[in-house]
Design a binder for these strands. Structure first.
Lengths: 344, 344
DNA sequence: TTGAAAGCGCTAACAT
DNA sequence: ATGTTAGCGCTTTCAA
């Protein structure tokens, strides 16, 4: 292995000079810098990560904790992870992959050992068990998601409440008065996953404001589960004329089932989803949807962390950064059919 | 930060004793061990990762390179990544997440700097540009996938050729004589992605052996793309009575389109897929399929790497480990309808 | 603009 | 069974 000392000898300078050429933390004459650069190149020198971390107490590693479960928003999770890795690299950081399995202790381990300088958490629950570790003089952290009490924490999230409101507004504006929500799997709500509950609140609040009736049903993924939920919904509320779907594995099954039961989209029933664009555009009917800005979430999370790490005093500019949701109208939403009156 | 030296002082022993208690590399009396353990506990000591890596030249980190693109087998990729992380932790290793973006140079960087001891690569192309780095006295590595020339490399993969053969056998056994294959996006073949090409070869070889006609069409994901491909297939081969699908985003659209064009599954047309079980079971018709053992692939990859790292002489027990594919028959495959004869 | 040297916290010979 | 000590390769004061 080539060491900094060997480079120094080869270039005829001292070790510290090589180090400063690398870090740029003090002025070096052009001649020296070039000589050092050439030696580094020739010898194929690579600084030893462990030695750096030890001497500088900065590992240049960010830990990313992804959910162990892969039962929801899977493409979104991967896309966020990739965006995090890419953005981190652009800032000279590497990313350590943690799964939810180890829970809070994994956070202690990787930051307490100096392995990671900071952490990014995904799949945030309203009362997330990892938060106490972070508040207790924990490491710099950014949550992708929002717990119920984000005080003192750094969060980046889509404004899911606004997303829910947007959906209701769109449908109410078209004239719908009875809306059904097909949600994530029951387990997602049981865990009080932040985004799911916030979306629901946004939906309900705006529905109440606008005098729209709303029915929410959690739903496991897949065709059969959706069939069951759909039957129950029409049973309880025959006048439902629009669906809001927050469950990527329910979108296409819903469309297929509506078709099969003789309901045209959007003439008879409207459908709108909160899901990745890919799902919305690849469905059998292009679905009006609120997109999940996965890349942007990952990117912003890293950028906030980098900014925080750059602050030498360690002050934390905490706060929740909510991305504004956007609704794209496609082919699945339109005015409701004429109301069945009592005299029909 | 609590250091090993402080623990030693607190326990009234030398630094090396603490180190040996931690590593278990030499016998320690029960009394001493307990005293040291207590001090570690009380002081909340955590060994510094960088210092360890420097002193021992072992970082206890495995790098995992995932594809940057997220255009195929996305759930599988995440599942493999999670399995890798989980298995690695069970062996005391952490996982560094690399994206394909940086390419071969990322491998040099993380291993050359001692950041990672070994690497796991996903999304292997037949003539993968990262392979030269590995062969040139590279770091211990395992590929999840198989290049065209795996000489001197360590690979773990599903036997996709056998998977293809299995599909044809099943359909031929049922009596089908004209089969169409709906494949991955054209870009996947253009990049010569190993699994896609091998599946195709398995399909073709066995089809030739069994006297079955085979038509292969790459296909972008989504409803509209499948519709186009399907129309062309029936146009070119009206007698096609079975489909093999290797594209998770094409499964449900295919089923929907067959239904809409009045073809019952499996009475009129059989469908069989190479895809994750979740996709197969959640479809509108439970699809007969060859599963992708994502967890198993991730787990095996790590275990081979750990075994390799444990070999002190650095010998590499290279070779390709192919997992045997299994076909699960569900509701989408059956005998073909009676042949339309010339006299009908 | 450059050099010398003192650590950073740990591991692993070498002693006893 | 335990202690002593010499590094591991780098960063960063302190000096010039």
């Amino acid at each position: 292995m080539v060491t900094l000392a060997e480079v120094a000898r080869h270039a005829g300078v001292s070790a510290s000079t090589v180090s400063y050429v690398l870090s740029g933390r003090r002025p070096i004459s052009d001649a020296t810098r070039e000589r050092v650069r050439a030696s580094i190149e020739q010898l194929g020198y690579q600084p030893h990560a462990g030695a750096r971390a030890l001497a500088s107490s900065r590992s240049r590693i960010i830990a990313l904790m992804v959910p162990l479960r892969t039962d929801m928003y899977v493409p979104v999770m991967l896309e966020i992870a990739v965006a995090v890795a890419t953005t981190a690299r652009a800032h000279g950081y590497d990313v350590l992959l943690l799964t939810g399995e180890e829970g809070p202790s994994a956070l202690r381990r990787v930051t307490g050992s100096g392995l990671a300088e900071a952490v990014i958490l995904m799949d945030i629950h309203l009362d997330d068990e990892r938060l106490p570790v972070l508040r207790a003089a924990g490491p710099p952290a950014v949550l992708v998601g929002t717990p119920s009490d984000p005080t003192g924490l750094n969060c980046v999230d889509l404004d899911f409440a606004a997303a829910g409101a947007l959906c209701v507004e769109h449908l109410a504006g078209l004239g719908h008065r009875e809306i059904a929500v097909i949600g994530e799997a029951p387990g997602v709500y049981a865990r009080h996953t932040g985004f799911a509950e916030r979306t629901l609140r946004g939906l309900r609040d705006r529905a109440a404001e606008l005098g729209v009736r709303l029915l929410h049903r959690p739903c496991e993924g897949g065709h059969d589960a959706v069939a069951g939920v759909l039957a129950r919904i029409f049973d309880e509320r025959p006048d439902v004329s629009a669906f809001v779907v927050q469950n990527e594995t329910a979108v296409e099954p819903l469309l297929a089932l509506l078709r099969r039961t003789g309901r045209a989209v959007p003439e008879d029933v409207s459908v709108i989803a909160v899901c990745p664009d890919q799902i919305a555009t690849q469905a059998s009917v292009a679905v009006s949807s609120v997109a999940i800005p996965a890349q942007e979430l990952g990117r912003r999370a890293v950028e906030r962390l980098i900014a925080r790490l750059a602050r030498p005093d360690g002050t934390d500019a905490v706060g929740v950064e909510l991305l504004v949701p956007e609704l794209t109208v496609r082919d699945s939403s339109g005015p409701p059919p004429p109301r069945r009156g009592p005299g029909d």
